[in-house]
Simulated scan of single mutants.
Amino acid sequence: MSTSIILPRIMQIGEGASDDISSVVLSLGCYHPLIVTDKVMVQLGYIATIQSNLRDNGIESQVYDETIPEPTTASLLAGVDLVRHGHFDSIIAVGGGSPIDSAKAISILGIHGGQMRDYKVPRIVNKQGLPVIAIPTTAGTGSEATRFTVITDEKTDEKMLCMGNGFMPTATLLDFNLTLSAPPRVTADTGIDALTHAIEAYVSRKANQYSDFQALTAMRLLTANLRAVFHDGYNKPARKSMMLGAHLAGVAFSNASVALVHGMSRPIGAAFHVPHGLSNAMLLPAVTRFSIPAATERYADCARAMGIAEASESDKIANEKLITELESLNEELKVPSLAEFGVERKKFFELMPLMAEQALASGSPDNNPVIPTSEQIIAIYQSLWDAV
């Protein structure tokens, strides 16, 4: 059986790749891009540099910097309005996963109209919006190479997964220099997010030979460098490897899928505003322990790719080491518990049935080695609190 592989049409990878923004825009036949970003990127001077580069090459741009972490339908409205009433022919997305996800949504809504809810799964969105040129500034989400976007409906606190080729960026510029300013907490959360992408893509029921190669390579790069960049953000070789690893993990899960961790993570983020990578980190050890019995060889492969188990060791030992490593990684990267983050226990327990329902509705748990019941998801949620 063949596998359909979807990638950005153009990829510039390496130090200084963002300097090529003008040539990429012009190669697409575009002259009037909207830059979608956040205020941090403006404050750091990244947007001024990009606009100067564009202006020097005869390209006039406008900036929309109102995106927010964990974007909502409301946070998109002003950007969508700009596209609908402006004369833009492309979008340049600069920032972490939230600005890039926002740009993807604005691209589709601005051209095709409707509400974000109209585009959530199970609908597959293959029609194209404005071409998106993604310039990530974190090594984590992989959004620059995925056909997904996640937007929260703030009225229902549902994180809506939207997917299809229409959400795949047309071009991606991977410049690890733009990640040097990321603080330790962001570095840790986005790095574990990327590691989760790689692991889930490899154990997914939709895994294929192509995604397997990307996922295993990503695991090697991420595990070898995540601790280093957490402790020293200006370690350029480690930042370079993290950027490539996160990108490959994005390619892997975009062409396979994520699974139970992501299905359970989105409701936590929507209800309690826990950053996506952080909720993934909280869940990864428990979900891995739950899922190993149905994919012992696959999870053992992960442990070996991560360099924490020898090829000569049994799958059982490799998987024990995998769980130990995931717990150790959370401890070293100072991943807080739900209580330490400030989640209210009573509200969390009250919402567990709804969160389980939302997790299952996302479709991601159906890709897990063990397809869980609502009761099993609730039990895993509860274990996060019981472990404190």
Rank of each mutant, 00 (worst) to 15 (best):
S2Q: 14
L7S: 05
Y31A: 15
V42K: 03
L44H: 07
T49I: 04
G58D: 04
S61P: 12
E70A: 13
A78M: 11
S90F: 13
I91T: 03
I92C: 01
P99V: 01
I106K: 14
S107K: 03
S107R: 04
I111L: 13
I124T: 14
N126I: 10
G129Y: 11
S143A: 15
E144H: 06
T146H: 08
F148K: 07
D153E: 06
D153F: 01
K155I: 10
L161E: 00
N165C: 11
N165A: 14
F167H: 06
A194F: 03
I199Y: 02
E200M: 09
Y202F: 15
F213N: 09
A218E: 06
T223K: 02
H231N: 13
H231W: 10
P237R: 00
G250K: 03
A252T: 04
V258T: 15
R266P: 11
S279Y: 01
P285I: 04
R298K: 15
C302F: 04
R304F: 03
M306W: 01
E313L: 11
E313I: 11
D315A: 14
T324Q: 10
L329H: 07
L329W: 03
V335W: 01
E340D: 11
F341E: 02
G342C: 05
A361C: 06
N367F: 05
P372K: 08
S374Q: 10
I377Y: 01
D386T: 07
V388K: 12
